[in-house]
Nucleic acid binder design. Sequence first.
DNA 1: TTGAAAGCGCTAACAC
DNA 2: GTGTTAGCGCTTTCAA
Lengths: 331, 331
Amino acid sequence: MNVGIKDVARVAAVSPATVSRVLAGRPVDPDMRDRVMAAVHETGYRPNLAARRLRSRHTNTIGLIVADIRNPFFTAVSRTVEAIAYDRGLRVIFCNTDEDAAKEAMYLQLMQEERVTGVILAPTREGADRIAHVESDFPIVLIDRAAPNASCDSVVIDNAAMAAKLVVHLHRLGHRRIAGLFGTDTVTGRERCDGYRRAMEECGIPGQVVPVPHEREQAQRVIAALLEDASRRPSALVVSNSVMLQSVLRVADALELEIPRDLALTSFDNEPWMEFVGGGLSVIEQPVEEIGRTAVTMLMDRLDHADCVTRRVVLAGRFIARGSGGRGVEA
Amino acid sequence: MNVGIKDVARVAAVSPATVSRVLAGRPVDPDMRDRVMAAVHETGYRPNLAARRLRSRHTNTIGLIVADIRNPFFTAVSRTVEAIAYDRGLRVIFCNTDEDAAKEAMYLQLMQEERVTGVILAPTREGADRIAHVESDFPIVLIDRAAPNASCDSVVIDNAAMAAKLVVHLHRLGHRRIAGLFGTDTVTGRERCDGYRRAMEECGIPGQVVPVPHEREQAQRVIAALLEDASRRPSALVVSNSVMLQSVLRVADALELEIPRDLALTSFDNEPWMEFVGGGLSVIEQPVEEIGRTAVTMLMDRLDHADCVTRRVVLAGRFIARGSGGRGVEA
DNA sequence: TTGAAAGCGCTAACAC
DNA sequence: GTGTTAGCGCTTTCAA
């Protein structure tokens, strides 16, 4: 069978406890330590993490649950979280809910069963609403999506203000028919929508909110309905993320609309390719690395200070103007 | 402390073994089963997976290790693998090596310590070379990148043939100065490079291979060096993946090159935005879902038939012609 | 410091 | 079918 700590102990002529101490880096007589290390190499011993976790009662593992692995925003945040976590000797259990609240609930339960130390979660809308009532054995840090009254720590960007920036930008360029496309199922979508609405009001022009479903084909149908009638077509769009933006582009292409002549596009997220469609798109870049870093830090803090008050960190997005509206960056 | 199986047993007035049997779905007297389920809900019992795995000696867990989480190809494959695995009641441990062979080795060791059932791996070049000599306790299925003589099962696409398709396409459009950009550190890059070379030879034109490093800034420097001198600039490029393509676009933009007039672009991978830059790019679309599905299936097969011969599944990519070269799809 | 012994929570083996 | 018992591999008392 597999080689265990007892086998190592026998080879090194020490007790299992001593082997355990060596492996944990606790103070042990140098000679013994050397003998143990030699025995470890000789036997090819690999610790059994299941046994270690069961006995020691801490897993050194955090859960990371995101809503859409295909959204580059989430993969960028995930990459940062993973890198930092491993630097700190933490394992990460990474899960993708595909905006499905049932899957999210299942994963949250899995985290309980894995006895994770904590969870970083980008919830679905339903999940974000429910999280207030959920009692879990581990702290949760919400990222990207968190109602202002959330009962968990959270790190978000100022979605409303950022959406307003896009509206103002388009308004300055002379656009008066500006539609806003936001996800039906996300807190983020709701917040961006609010910001869009207020900004439109302040500009004194009527808003047109279009709720867009997550599933791509459905999304494209909704967008096609918005754009196909030339007489009622908006002249510009505020789009809630890069995935949705690609659906818009596909529909616009099918309708043979030219960007930005027939339709000006602005979006959240900043992917490299956005520089190269329609002469460059103006966007809100999110500080993905800082979001990931902050989330891990907040989680660790929470583990140290379980009863500290709930914190909400709001980071600023970065407005990047491109294309005919002029290039430039504005904080 | 936490509620365990014994607590449930006491509440239900049965033995711990019976609770275990109910939870595992084994035959139990209906009355008892009901009592147990009631007790489970009453106590809020959640199984401890560490304990279960330790005792039962199977983890029902597979590892999925990819080389670049920011590459949409890998996220698409990962999404499929994860969805299928969960349907089959398997957990997935998802890891990102960032093309770092050391990180890859560390993760492979982690998989040992987690006692996973099997691993699906998109290796770095170094890792792919080394994998032949590695003895692991679990089967490994290589995806995307696998030397033809790999000692593991693998599922790949016919990279050489696909690269050749792109070359032939460009040649037909009249291009004679076609450079090939391929990753320095990947098996895939090497294979695509070979296909490119052979196709260039067959077309009777000299090839120009440009090895591109994974790190983005370095990549852009290499690409800038290739493109900045107008007199020596190729008229068309074969690019190895969508991440690299974005670096190309950025450099081309900085040099104020117009696509495809100053530079024609073709690439592997098919992301929606590729329809909208340079009037539409001709690309090789990879069957991402089928790759993921096949990988899981092969892994399960291997678990059932440990001593079966090594299998290599080669899937076909799909050539998609767009832009001035004419639209269309060809298998 | 080190070793002996107990036991983390669960399932498998065995007897009933 | 059900309960009793042992023990998965490890860490952590506790005593020496």
